[in-house]
Write a protein that binds this DNA or RNA. Structure first.
Ligand SMILES: [Mn+2]
Ligand SMILES: [Mn+2]
Ligand SMILES: [Zn+2]
Ligand SMILES: [Zn+2]
Lengths: 157, 157
DNA sequence: CAGTATAGTTACATTGATTGTTGATTACAC
DNA sequence: GTGTAATCAACAATCAATGTAACTATACTG
């Protein structure tokens, strides 16, 4: 992701103002690999700025996403997750238990521009659903059972 | 998917009743490769049975899904899509314009049971987003531009 | 065939993430 | 400094999906 300084310039250059809350959001996103939700950003931000509104967070994240500075990622949890990693083409690991999301680089066999089964491909998104290390540890014995039968019923994303 | 007859037996064997609306839902799903939403099933069904309620459709689809007879698939459109194809392990093509969903068989490089990056894998879902043949035809010239810039901004599923 | 448990219907209400609205207040940027 | 944006607060609205409740209808069993 661009640095907070670059973003400041970019925002001003495009007629947007850089407020303290926006600057803090830039900083919070910097190098964050946890794919936070809007609510999570809000939670972290309101720890420091008691008066921020959730609305402002949504607005700023939406703006960043529409500028291509961050990605909004849908991994099938009900809420969108935001991803500052726009440099590296990657896919996602999702923990089925705690909903932690982590980057993973996988070679995808379908590239944009290709035609497959008549479809002109734009992008391919892969979500690998499993149990993160800490959830495996917490479940111990039961982890294997979880992955086998567990809540692995629904398909896709 | 199991045949309507098999489903009838299965329902009765598990203490469920087989009503005309349920039987029709079984039949509508049979061999349907379009991955209809609950609303779509409801639309089709109410064309024949004026009094069906959406509630009943949701209920029956939910029951079928929890019995493993069909899959409920989340491809990132806001609504769940239902899939009678539980026999073949497969992935999905999604049209970014009309939201048509089609099966596609892709070899996935991450198998359940494997551990990748510390995650114990349960399942891998791939959604290939692109333009379906008819949308390409309708867009003509503009199709290529659509896939390039178009609404390809958000990631995953 | 009749009794009973199950399902369907209708009409709401609710959930949860997100977006929209309004109006008043604050403060960034030139 | 001035004007334009952004923020805030307090709501309302969305949309898919689920829940509730009361009543009716009917599928299955014996
Ligand atoms: Mn990522
Ligand atoms: Mn399918
Ligand atoms: Zn976890
Ligand atoms: Zn299409």
């Amino acid at each position: 992701m661009k640095s907070p300084e670059e973003l400041t310039d970019l925002f001003r250059a495009t007629g947007r103002k850089v407020t303290p809350q926006r600057r803090r959001i830039f900083e919070l996103l910097q190098g964050d690999g946890t794919h936070p939700s809007a609510e999570e950003i809000y939670r972290r931000l309101s720890a420091e700025m008691a008066t921020v509104s959730l609305k402002t967070v949504y607005q700023t994240l939406g703006e960043l996403a529409s500028m291509g500075v961050i990605l909004s990622v849908d991994v099938g949890t009900r809420s969108m997750r935001f991803d500052p990693n726009v440099e590296t083409d990657h896919q996602h690991l999702l923990c089925a238990r705690c909903e932690a999301v982590r980057d993973v680089v996988l070679s995808v066999e379908v590239a944009p521009g290709e035609v497959i089964d008549g479809y002109l491909v734009m992008r391919t998104d892969v979500v690998v659903k499993g149990l993160c290390p800490s959830c495996q540890a917490e479940l111990g014995e039961a982890a294997a059972r979880w992955t086998a039968s567990g809540s692995a019923r629904s398909a896709a994303s």
